[in-house]
């Protein structure tokens, strides 16, 4: 879906925020950011929801909220919604806890615990092993490097990983990466389904028109796109 998250090429969001460019900015600018990040990773590892559902939850945010908020407010919004919709923790329970919890604040930069609980140990394993997304399949890829493809005109209001600025653009397959799990199937049906994945190269003028592209010198735009987003260019 082309929700508020799908900002590629949009005008009017303003310049890159100057203070953010300071190379000494810490990984987490506020203590709640690190907590939110770790809690999300833990809830995913615990099977409460998956990464694609979490991304989709962010895409469903109201536009103004998304644009004007702290990055980890996006995560909070999505995690709250998923836990509520799945009956794990309701919004009302969080409201109630906010009202009744003792005053306090998170401690930034927590030290490494001296001993790891089984859950902490499991999380360290997740951090340093990862969760690969490739899926075995017998399906033959439809495209090969060098093929010219046209991005399908996809405007469904459900989860996918197609940036809106690429709708209907014509590009050339640069790499084929085998099949990865399909984000839509994962977000909406919680299943792993194979979808061949390609890196596709686009021409700047085809994307933005010559008035804009000419002023930017030579550049190529590459995006990682699933086979289901692509048609042969001559189709």
């Amino acid at each position: 879906m082309h929700g508020p998250h799908d900002v590629g090429g949009r005008d009017g969001l303003g310049p890159v925020i100057e203070v953010f460019k300071d190379p000494d900015q810490p990984p987490f600018r506020y203590a709640f950011e690190g907590r939110m990040h770790a809690l999300t990773a833990m809830a995913i590892a615990g099977g409460a929801f998956n990464l694609d559902e979490q991304r989709h939850g962010i895409e469903l945010m109201p536009w103004a909220h998304y644009t004007d908020s702290n990055y980890y407010e996006h995560w909070l919004y999505s995690v709250e919604k998923l836990l509520n919709d799945k009956g794990i923790i309701t919004h009302e329970e969080i409201d109630e806890r906010v009202r009744t919890q003792p005053a306090g604040s998170f401690t930034a930069n927590p030290p490494k615990p001296e001993t790891l609980s089984p859950l902490a140990d499991k999380m360290m394993g997740v951090l340093w092993a990862g969760t690969p997304h490739n899926v075995d399949t017998d399906q033959e890829p439809r495209f090969a490097p060098g093929d010219t493809v046209r991005v399908r005109n996809i405007n469904v209001a459900s989860h996918n990983r197609l940036p809106g600025y690429l709708n209907r653009a014509v590009g050339v397959v640069h790499w084929h990466h085998g099949a990865h799990h399909d984000p839509a199937a994962s977000a909406h049906r919680q299943v792993d389904e194979p979808n061949h994945l390609y890196t596709v190269r686009f021409d700047k003028a085809d994307l933005w028109g010559s008035e804009v592209a000419d002023g930017q010198g030579d550049f190529h735009l590459y995006a990682d796109l699933f086979e289901s987003y692509l048609d042969p260019a001559d189709a």
């Binding site: 690190g34 990040h37 809690l39 833990m42 902490a120 951090l127």
Partner: peptide, 20 residues
């Protein structure tokens, strides 16, 4: 989340520390 068994605060500390 701690009450539901999906998180532990010390494990959150460990993850934040690893990220940082």
């Amino acid at each position: 989340l701690v009450e539901r068994g999906l998180a532990e605060s010390a494990a959150v500390d460990a993850v934040v520390n690893a990220f940082e």
